[in-house]
Each structure stands twice: as structure tokens, then as C-alpha cells.
Nucleic acid binder design. Sequence first.
DNA 1: GTGAAAGCGCTAACAG
DNA 2: CTGTTAGCGCTTTCAC
Lengths: 340, 340
Amino acid sequence: MSDKNKSEVTINDIARALGISASTVSRSLNDSSKISEKTKSRVREMAVELGYELNLVASSLSKSKTNLIGVIIPRLNSQFFSQAVSGIEEVARQSGYQIIICQSNEDFTKECEMAKVLYSTRVDGVVACLSKETTTVEHFNVFIQKKVPVAMFDRVSYAIEGPKVVVDNYEGAYRATEHLIASGCTRLAHLAGPQNCKVFQERAEGFRDALKKAGLPLLPRHLLASDLNEKDVRDSMALWMGLKEAPDGIFTASATSGLLMLNLVRNYNVRVPEDMAFISFGNEPCNELITPSLSAVDMPGLDMGKAAAKHLVDAIEKKQNGDGIFLKPIQLLIRNSSFR
Amino acid sequence: MSDKNKSEVTINDIARALGISASTVSRSLNDSSKISEKTKSRVREMAVELGYELNLVASSLSKSKTNLIGVIIPRLNSQFFSQAVSGIEEVARQSGYQIIICQSNEDFTKECEMAKVLYSTRVDGVVACLSKETTTVEHFNVFIQKKVPVAMFDRVSYAIEGPKVVVDNYEGAYRATEHLIASGCTRLAHLAGPQNCKVFQERAEGFRDALKKAGLPLLPRHLLASDLNEKDVRDSMALWMGLKEAPDGIFTASATSGLLMLNLVRNYNVRVPEDMAFISFGNEPCNELITPSLSAVDMPGLDMGKAAAKHLVDAIEKKQNGDGIFLKPIQLLIRNSSFR
DNA sequence: GTGAAAGCGCTAACAG
DNA sequence: CTGTTAGCGCTTTCAC
């Protein structure tokens, strides 16, 4: 009847229609225990009759709670990250939160901007995986100061508080290298990632230590730090193939670089795994479909995402800062590229 | 100096500190043209001094604009979707919007719920790709009624207004089939998707028509509608291989099913592409890395995402509903699985 | 069990 | 150019 031309139906409209107060309507809609069932149902009916829909921005403002979680990640298009985001989204939604996605694109400056706008959005928490470029985390201080929990996964920083969900990169690298050695490789090489980034440091370290432990030398130029982009991978491959002592076992610090290398090696007269074995840190579905299938250290992306979100939500709701390091198991997937 | 213990610094604090009004502060911070440069800079300085950060939820409430875009997609973990979301995120952010991601997981009920909460969040617009189950789009009516633009891509519905970004599924399927025929296949089969879903209908239709055009028969059970999940694919493969007249050319309606089939065929004594050629609708990076490499109809996920976001933003800002169908080109990627 | 009133932080007429 | 005054729609004491 009161078909007002106003765009939005509010609790006031319901209140007016029912001849009660807005607070009663609010309480009813929130299922407050101190409202009679009768009133509640009258309110609910009128709400649907008028086509009322809660306005979360108003609600957020008055409650100082947005039920929004900011997610900062390097990018979306890798199995690991899309799985992680899936996991985050799933547990977030189950817990009543929505997620705002920001891709830093491995760009530190963008990461900083994103932190700012997420803060302005007053997200209740953020889960982040740092860019490769990131070496300082002061851009997260806004959150810390205002008691907004920050959960990190994979590429984390221990310089700020909050839950961290990680894998043991050192161990994964160590075991991968060990495996290559067990397969009979003696001239091992490692295509490492940017060494300012902790996870890549750890992977390089695991590699080095495994060699040391086995009494194997690290041949000159057999450990190459790089950005892991396509050019770097191609250059590294070319460099190694030109060496007098070319590697007979290669461990790459990322899935994509491993895939690319395995592809590049076809241009040479080299048998895999007989002449050259491969294993990569990080697994893509692709790894087991190609020929030869590519061995990998698998990181549980989905689980890590879920865990990060879970610990974040706990931190948000229980007001416990949720500090803690949660180590997720990696898995060595041995396939044809290294099995001999 | 005025180190009040209040958690949030507001424009009022700045106003008080400077002995001016809150509106002047607001205008300054928004770089209004009618504020003296001098005042602006005093305000800006005081803002950083006090550690002020804009509260977007308050701003959103008073402006009735959230600068949030809701994204509803079936899932994240396929090249196509992660690329699409990347594209959406990129142009959204460049245009000053943040995106809220919701995965329907191909579940119609979830899709409906998501539409509801996105509306409650008062997103300024939504970009959606319908779930396979979705046959009705009434859950989007909230948006339409309230003039919130809805852009759709790939799996779209013409039952509601708003920009649609699509590829010509019929044409892609037609050309893929045509290609198989040109390669010498005569007993063609198509693993189709759920036929309530338009894109899969169109693909099946393109397949049928290409056969007809070439005067080739559609052999019994050579067109199988399915859900494209792993079990369906396995069953279909088994069924086909058991046929007296087994297919010698297979066109799958999705990338993953194609990949899986190509993998399954190894269990049979069949040469690819000599005895059986393959091509899939949808391409994954994987497709060119496997052996034999898998031919595909490639959809430009990134572009489609960007386009959808762009048209949505236009619709939001120019108040033009942006109706229109934007056809993105597909590309036939002929690789070893079908080239003979 | 329900109402009145204040307020969350910002913006936007309307004055001057 | 700047200030005053109302809200935006909802929640939340504090009364009754």
C-alpha cells in the first residue's frame, strides 16, 4: 500500500507499517531473545512483504564490524594460489565472512596500496601471502596497531604478529635433493628463486645441505638465483647446457619453472631421467599429465588456505591474536622425471 | 598531544585540532576545488599527524556507494576462471573498485545465497558466471529491481538485462568438429556438458551441425550428455571403447574432460591421433605440455573478465545499463592430438 | 518485552 | 571558501 518511491526499504518502514519502534524491528530481525515470538513473526512477515533486505553497510558502521576479510596474494593463476583462495573463501563464508581479493602481482608497491585500501574498508582481518619483492612489512602495521588480525601463509614474515601457515621449505628441498641423489645424480643444480625472499632462501639451503650431507660438491654455477620468470629459466637452462660439467639432476624452486625446463630440455639431446633428472618445488595438475611426468614437492594449497582463514577467524572472534606457526606437511611426489 | 584513547581517528578529530569544521576537512580530503590550497595542506598534514585513515564504510553509507563489485563464479581452479577473475580484479581496481569473490561451486542454492548477501553488502554491481545447475535467474532480480547492474560472462542468461560477454560456442564447436573431419575422422563423438546449460547446448549443436554439413552420420551413443565430472568422463570413455563402432575423433565440451580422456586412452591400444583424434573446448596451459599435445578451442578468459568488468563499471558509472552482447573471439589451437 | 534517543563516521545540501 | 545542519540505516544503551 505505502508504495513510496524511495529506493530502499528500511527497518523504519517496517516499524511504521507495524506501529512499533525501529529498535524492536532490529531486535526481531536479529532474533533477540527478549522479543516475543509473536512480534518477531509479525516483523518477519512484514519484512518480506515490503521486500526488506538488511543493509550491511549501515550495520557495519554501527557495529564497527564489516564481516569482510581482505586477501592479498601475488596472483591467482597458479594451482597453489587458486587452491589457497578457494580454501580461504570456503571457510570464510562458512564463518559468515566475505572475502575481498587483491592481487599484488608480485609488486611491493601495489601490496602497500592494497593494505591501505583494505584498512580503509575496515576489513575485520586479512590473510596475506607476500610478494617476491617484499622485504619489509611496515605496510601491515596499520592492522597491527588497530588490532586487526593478519594471518599469513606460505610467504610469511615473522616480523609481525598473527598466525602463520607454512610448509617446511628447507625440508622439502632437502628431501627433493636427497631423492635426486638417491636416484644416482651426482652433479646437482638448483634453479633458485629471489634470495631476498625467505622461502626461496630456505629451499636453496635445503639443497645445499643435502649436497653437503651426501658429500657431493656444489659445482660452479650450479646454484642460480633468479626471478623464475620465463627468461631467467631459459637463460639458466642454456647456461647449464653449455657447461663442461652440465648437471645431471635439476631441482627448481617453483612449479612453473620446472615445467618450462622440462619442456626446454627437449631441444637438447638429453634423456630424462637417465641423463638428467628433474624435480620441482610446487606441483601443478599438469605435472602428472606430461611425459615424462614431473616429480614435485607438493604443497597443500587448499589446506593452507583453509588453515589461514580458520586461524584468522579465530583471532577475529576470540580476540586471541592467534599467534602461532602452523606447519603443513609437504609431500614428495616421485614421478618419471626423476625415477630411475 | 590529544592522545585520546579512542580507537578511531575521525575527521572530527582533525577538525577540532585545527579549529575548523568537519565538512571543511571532508572537502579537503576529497580535494574539493572550493577549498583553499592552504587549508587543504593544513588538513592533510594534520591527518597524517593524527594517523587518520578514511573510513570507507561510513563514506559508503552516506554516499550510498560502496565501490565494491561482487563476483559470482562456479570455481577458481581452472585456467579460464582464474584468468577471468584476474582480469576482473585488474580493471576493477584500476577503476577504484574492490571485488568480493564468491564461488558457487556449481551449486544453484549457493549461487542464490550469494546473490542475497552481495545485495545486502550493497555492492555497486556484480559480475557473474552461472553455475551448471542454474536454469532460472530470479535470484538476480534483487539487483535488477534496485538498478544494480549485473554483467555476465561465459555462462550467461539473456533473461535479465546487463552486458554479456561471451564466445560463440556454436562456432567454436563447429570449427573444432570441422577440423576433426578435415583430419580424416569419420566416426565422431562428442562428450557434451549438461544440456540445461546453454553453452553446452550450443557446443553440442555446433558439433551436430558440422557432422550434418559434412554428410557424416551421428552414430548411436556418440553424443553423450554428462556432468563432465571425473566419473562421467571415465564411464563415457569406457562406453565408447566398448562400442563396435568406436569413435575415431573425440570432441570434449570442457578442457579438463579432454585432458582426462587423453590420459585414459593410454590404457587402450589406440594411437593418438592416428586411430583417435582429440580436441577439447577450453584450453589449459597443460594442453601444450602433454604428449601428445591436446588441441583445443581457446577462450580468452583474461579478456572476457576484463571486458565484463569494464562494461559493468560503465554501467555503474554512466548509468547506462550497458546492455549489449560482447562477443570475444575464440581460437582454434591445433596440436598433435588431432593433427594428422 | 518494547520504546526513545544517541551515535557509528562521513557527505551533502543550504547558507552565508 | 567555510560552517551548520541533516541525514545514510542500523545498533544499542538506558528507561519504562
